[in-house]
Design a protein around this nucleic acid. Structure first.
Length: 109
DNA sequence: TACTTGACAAAAG
DNA sequence: CCTTTTGCCAAGT
C-alpha cells in the first residue's frame, strides 16, 4: 500500500496488540523500520485520539513499562483500561512488564 | 526552507 | 533503579 503514512502504520500495529499485552514505542518504531523514530510513535498517538477506529494507546508504554502517556488520557484512564484487561499497574508502571511485553517484530511474525 | 516540539531510547555516572 | 545527556526523525508553524 503506497500512500501509507507514518501515523497510519503506527495505528495499524497498535491495533494488533493483543488484549492483556503491552508494547513499547521503540518496538513499534523498530517494526516499522524507523527505529530512531520511537518519539514519532508516541507523537502519532497524540493524533490517535481522533483516529478511527480508536487506537488502544493504553497498551503502548515506554521501554520501562512506565505509563508515560497516561497524562494525555486524562486522569487515570490509562491505568483503568489496563487493569480492565488484566494488567497490573502500580505507580504508573506496568507490573510484569517483561512478561506482558508484546514484540510485533517477533510475535506478529 | 528553517526552527521548534515531542506519549522515546540508549548510554553514562 | 535514578538522573542527566545525546541522538533520533517526522509534523507543525
Amino acid at each position: 500500500m503506497d500512500k501509507s503514512n507514518f501515523y497510519d502504520d503506527v495505528y495499524q500495529v497498535v491495533r494488533l496488540i493483543p488484549k492483556g499485552r503491552v508494547t513499547s514505542y521503540g518496538a513499534i518504531a523498530e517494526y516499522l523500520g524507523t527505529k530512531g523514530s520511537s518519539r514519532m510513535v508516541g507523537y502519532a498517538m497524540g493524533a490517535s485520539g481522533t483516529a478511527q477506529p480508536p487506537v488502544p494507546a493504553h497498551r503502548v508504554v515506554n521501554r520501562n513499562g512506565l505509563l508515560s502517556g497516561k497524562i494525555h488520557f486524562g486522569g487515570d484512564t490509562m491505568e483503568q483500561l489496563l487493569e480492565s484487561e488484566g494488567i497490573s499497574v502500580e505507580d504508573n508502571q506496568v507490573q510484569n512488564f517483561k512478561q506482558l511485553f508484546w514484540d510485533p517484530s517477533a510475535e506478529l511474525l
